[in-house]
Amino acid sequence: MIRYALTCANDHGFESWFQSAEAFDRLAASGLVACAVCGSDKVAKTLMAPSVRPARQSTEPAAKPLTTPQNPAEMALAAMRRQIEENSDYVGMNFAAEARAIHDGEAPERSIYGEARADEARKLIEDGVPVAPLPFLPARKTN
């Protein structure tokens, strides 16, 4: 996972996590990275200082293989994902339509998560539908 400081064309600053630098490039080129404030898909990386751990002491025992996230950011992201998946309905690519139906009272009110194109998400925000981007992809899209 890699964290980037980002800014949009409207000069809003925010941060987001990506699986890799290539994943950010691929998502940004597809218009799938959007500003968390205004929804603009004109997003660029900004300068940020890297997070560097101090060197290990030579007397430290060999590290064990990691099977679960160990740093606080990864642990928080994993906890957020669990919370959302346990307490929300996954609606897949129908997210925009389902969010609008719930907002308009045409579908039962409940927590949902899913996928939407940047233009669909922007339209929901413009229409006052309360939505927010998630810092992870649905399980079906991960390796």
Rank of each mutant, 00 (worst) to 15 (best):
M1D: 09
M1S: 14
I2T: 12
I2R: 10
Y4K: 10
Y4W: 13
Y4S: 06
L6P: 06
L6R: 08
C8E: 07
N10D: 14
N10E: 15
D11L: 11
G13Q: 13
G13I: 10
G13K: 13
E15Y: 12
W17E: 13
F18S: 03
Q19R: 11
A23Y: 04
R26F: 09
A28K: 10
A29S: 12
L32D: 12
V33A: 04
A34D: 07
C35D: 05
C35M: 07
A36P: 04
V37H: 12
V37I: 14
V37C: 05
G39C: 03
S40L: 05
D41H: 15
K42V: 14
K42T: 14
V43H: 09
A44N: 09
M48Y: 05
P50H: 10
A55I: 08
R56D: 13
P61I: 07
A63L: 14
P65G: 03
L66T: 10
T67H: 12
T68H: 09
A73M: 11
E74I: 02
E74M: 07
M75Q: 15
A76S: 10
L77N: 09
A78S: 12
A79W: 07
M80V: 04
R81G: 02
R82K: 13
Q83H: 12
Q83A: 11
E86R: 15
E86Y: 07
E86F: 10
N87A: 10
S88E: 03
S88D: 01
D89A: 15
Y90F: 15
G92M: 04
M93I: 11
N94E: 13
F95H: 00
A97G: 09
A99I: 01
R100F: 00
H103D: 04
G105D: 01
E106L: 14
A107V: 02
A107D: 04
E109H: 09
E109T: 14
R110M: 07
Y113R: 06
A116C: 08
D119T: 11
D119H: 11
A121D: 01
A121Y: 03
R122G: 01
K123A: 15
L124P: 00
E126A: 13
D127V: 00
G128P: 02
G128A: 02
V129E: 01
V129F: 02
V131C: 01
A132V: 13
P135M: 09
P135R: 04
A139P: 06
N143A: 15
